[in-house]
């Protein structure tokens, strides 16, 4: 009996054929343009390209140990962590505040949301260039500081400030993206729930903290993961605004990878840096899936 029920639950071979006919192109594309290169990256991370780019020699895990002893790489990882610290909390708090602020039925509020969304739609290079000029030595921001009697700031040339200036650009560009996500989630909040709380005598503030905020918790977790992944992959902002400087103070993980590969032609080292980054991101995504899975069952 057991074998019978098992075989009847198996898809028919003709159904299999049809499904795989559909899947041939997409899975083929993923295999050729994603997983093939991924395997190649794993292999290349084991090779030494320092003698010859055409005929690399097998090195084993040498690139990984070298990487972990390279101050520039460690600094890039550390700096990526600092970016994370500066960006992710702001990417949670600011969009949340914006969403709560704009979650009201006032005439014109839709137009405001649309306008706030403009930085999201604009390409990263354009945003980077616009801010590069705002941050310039005699740019608009310093001019504004001067009119109120403050000294000008070396926004992009002071190693202690440049990474914060870049973080601000990232937040400025991304905040409305997460704001819209949270807004959509807010609007799915059952108004009966809020009314019930009101009838039970909950103050507006209490309703906020005990009904609205808990409702948003899964979304906030999601935003945190998304912005973490985004921060770990930061590249274009850095390229346009500072090129990794001053003194490597805005060098990120991906920027290091890019320079190792296309600046120094250290392909093995660059691939090793990429593979390490991949494991970090896979761990984060996997944690997120687990988290969401639990939220689903709750």
């Amino acid at each position: 009996m057991a074998t019978l029920s098992k075989s009847s639950s198996k898809p028919k071979s003709s159904a299999n054929k049809i499904a795989w006919l559909f899947l041939a192109l997409p899975i083929g594309c993923l295999a050729v343009f994603f997983f093939g290169p991924l395997l190649a990256a794993g292999w290349m991370s084991l090779l030494d390209y320092s003698q010859s780019l055409e005929k690399p020699t097998f090195l084993g895990l040498g690139n990984y140990t070298r990487l972990l002893q390279t101050p520039a790489f460690l600094q890039a990882v550390w700096q990526t962590g600092l970016f994370w610290l500066a960006i992710v909390p702001a990417m949670v708090v600011l969009p949340l505040a914006l969403a709560l602020f704009l979650n009201r039925a006032v005439f014109g509020v839709g137009a405001i949301r649309t306008v706030l969304y403009l930085p999201v739609v604009t390409s990263l290079v354009v945003v980077g260039l616009a801010w590069k000029w705002l941050y310039a030595k005699d740019g608009l921001i310093n001019a504004g500081l001067a009119t109120v009697g403050l000294p000008s700031v070396d926004w992009l040339t002071d190693p202690n400030i440049a990474w914060l200036a870049i973080s601000l650009v990232v937040i400025w560009k991304g905040a409305a993206y997460y704001m819209m996500m949270i807004l959509a989630h807010l609007q799915s909040l059952n108004s009966e729930l809020l009314q019930a709380a009101e009838l039970d005598g909950a103050s507006p503030w209490q309703r906020h903290w005990h009904v609205t905020i808990p409702h948003l918790a899964p979304m906030v977790a999601f935003v945190m993961v998304m912005s973490t992944i985004g921060t770990l992959k930061m590249f274009t902002e850095i390229y346009v605004l500072t090129g990794g400087g001053p003194l490597g103070s805005t060098q990120t993980w991906v920027y290091y990878l890019y320079e190792a590969a296309f600046g120094h032609l250290e392909l093995g080292l660059a691939c090793a840096a990429g593979i390490l980054l991949m494991w970090v991101l896979v761990a984060i995504s996997w944690g997120q899936l687990r988290l969401l899975g639990e939220a689903d069952h709750a």
Binding site: P11, L267, G274, M278, S285
Partner: peptide
């Protein structure tokens, strides 16, 4: 919509391709 052998594997492949950052495959690609 379809039931076919290897469906969990296909799902796994698709999910994995979302998790793995593009920058990793930059050089071989």
């Amino acid at each position: 919509r379809m039931r076919f052998t290897g469906k969990p594997i296909v799902f796994g492949i698709v999910l994995a391709s979302m998790m793995i950052p593009f920058q990793v495959i930059l050089i071989p690609l």
